[in-house]
Design a protein around this nucleic acid. Structure first.
Lengths: 349, 349
DNA sequence: CAATATTATGCAATGGATTGCACAATATAA
DNA sequence: TTATATTGTGCAATCCATTGCATAATATTG
């Protein structure tokens, strides 16, 4: 087999120009529908371009204009259901507008996040959408983005930066409706399991929990609040703690589905009836919640919509040109009721 | 708040040159460590570049060289556990080498796939890694990649294209070890549930199933083979069919975890003991398999490794320059034994 | 020391599209 | 018909890095 392969050269405006005996400048203007160019010439150029299947060279454009039609999207991990669905949403919104989405991971490392932002700036992206790493404490890399006059949009996890925008889940609302749902089921001794309260999302879910109690005249009891990591093992631990200390509760609201799953497993192992004795609610509506034997009631954050919304905010900023717009969008999450919390209803056969 | 924001201009080789009273050509050569340049000058240039925090403009490079250090990665959907982990692997391998990975989705549509490939070529990516859409029947878009002299690497799902490479799971092996495992558990009446046999992956899993039977002198019985879609509902349907027709089996090997889950749910609903009466094995090792009450034995394909491997093949091709290398790698999947298939063992408390 | 060989640098064109300015072609008014 | 206004194109520089060729600067040899 021969190694020679004929690589056809991509046509340029010069090819079109010489074919039509005009100059590249005219072709360029015609392609950009400049009002300086006559209709006749425009028509010629457009036809010719189509014929040669000409398309603009992105890199020449980028070099000349400094704009790339690429945006940077930074998530902690792309292989998380939540984030990959956000990516879906962003792509869906931006791809049709001619933007390309450069996806990067921070791996929850501040250093990697800084590197990645640096790389994005080198690439001259036209904007940055980012969900901040858990370990990030500084924000000079975010300021650098702003200094470069680029739209900066935080999603899900934000940091206070002037002239930036954000799209978040209304976590407080989520905490509230989950708690209210348990109350509606007749629960009043509602345990709460939180993850690191330094993180806004958990802080706000907790706030929602307390607000719902208050709205229903149920006294907040700090003995019913537990701290855990967002995983199954931690959930089991909490459940064990509750059982062995004989803490009286009729329900548990967990700020993570994984915790809820661990709780359920441990309770089941100890012959506690769910939801009969104890109702359980999780948070995030992970795919597995509806695959379990005992399906798990949870809060759906709709990451796909978060992505779409963040993308739209970006487009807004771009279109607004120099006017600085600061969006701060909070999307309402939705309660997905399943068997783990339905005290008085039929379960599917 | 003022709209004015000072955007500092990015330094170029000309800035370095004028600072040092030399020309841009010399700077360029120095930065590229050309042996034409004296050590003294190189040192000066490097220091100066560092001082100005200079970096090369990717687009100028791309324009000049036609190479972009970007590769295109096309998957059916990025929000699937399997594919997002492949992406992880690719990124991990290529990012340190200075490549950027442009991720695109085909949404299992041939048309979208063609568009996406077109877009990648316009972008002048340096290579394409792709997992072919289920609906793709033509391959002219793949040939176009080859005609452009770009490395083309298929992963997971391939199509025959000259001069391309591929990285796949050894599905036949997977089918074999899963079946063998059931046989080792004492099973001999092993039902098999397949998805569309037009797709290579399912064809090969089926082949593995048959080979294992043969190796153990168990007659293949086509009455035990069922067709389904890769979802829970279809799994339930198959189980119902088996039960209502009173087909005698001691195990079911499903070519998808979702099918296996449906099967399990339906069997449980009918008070069939798993694995006592019927053992169940799935395929793909989806995250939920170990979260279920009855954890599901499955075949781990290690998508992360598939991604890494595909990336390495790409790098090989690039380094080989004009020599055309055709890799055809098959990665051995791994059996993950869990409770759904363990006839004679303790289950976790 | 002159003459040649080496080494280090500069000049200028290239890649593709854009755009301010100059100028040609045409249309309008005097 | 000539002078002026209007419209449509062309010229050439620009964005930034690379590279073939020419030449300056230095080192080596006779």
């Amino acid at each position: 087999m021969s190694n020679f392969q004929y690589v056809k050269k991509k046509p340029t405006i010069y090819d079109i120009a010489s074919k039509l005996n005009i100059t590249a400048a005219t072709v360029s203007r015609a392609l950009n529908d400049s009002e300086l160019i006559s209709k006749k010439t425009k028509k010629m150029v457009l036809e010719s371009a189509h014929e040669l299947s000409y398309f603009k060279n992105r890199h020449a454009l980028a070099l000349k204009s400094g704009r790339t039609n690429q945006i940077g999207l930074v998530v902690p991990f792309i292989n998380r259901h939540f984030f990959s669905n956000i990516i879906m949403g962003v792509e869906e919104e931006l791809y049709p507008k001619g933007y390309q989405v450069m996806i990067f991971q921070s791996n929850e490392s501040e250093k990697k996040e800084q590197d990645v932002v640096e790389a994005l700036l080198k690439n001259q992206v036209d904007g940055v959408l980012i969900s901040v790493s858990k370990t990030t404490r500084t924000k000079s890399h975010f300021n650098k983005i702003i200094e470069n006059n680029l739209p900066l949009i935080f999603f899900d996890r934000k940091v206070d930066v002037d002239n930036s925008s954000s799209v978040e889940t209304d976590d407080e609302f989520g905490g509230k409706i989950a708690t209210q749902h348990l109350i509606d089921q007749g629960c009043s001794q509602i345990a709460y399991v939180t993850v690191d309260l330094n993180l806004n999302i958990y802080k706000n879910r907790f706030k929602g929990y307390k607000k719902a109690l208050e709205a229903n005249n149920i006294d907040f009891n700090s003995d019913l609040v537990f701290q855990a990591n967002s995983d199954v093992i931690s959930g089991r631990k909490v459940a064990r703690q509750i059982l062995s200390n004989d803490i009286k509760i009729d329900s548990i609201f967990c700020s993570s589905d994984y915790i809820a799953l661990g709780v359920i497993q441990e309770l089941k192992d100890n012959n506690v009836d769910i939801p009969g004795d104890i109702s359980v609610v999780g948070f995030s509506n992970e795919p597995f919640t509806e695959l379990l034997d005992l399906t798990l009631t949870s809060i759906e954050q709709n990451p796909y919509e978060i992505g779409k919304s963040a993308a739209r905010v970006f487009l807004d900023q771009v279109n607004a040109k120099d006017a600085i717009i600061e969006h701060a969008i909070k999307l309402k999450p939705k309660l997905c009721i399943r068997n783990s919390s339905m005290k008085n209803s039929l379960k599917p056969h």
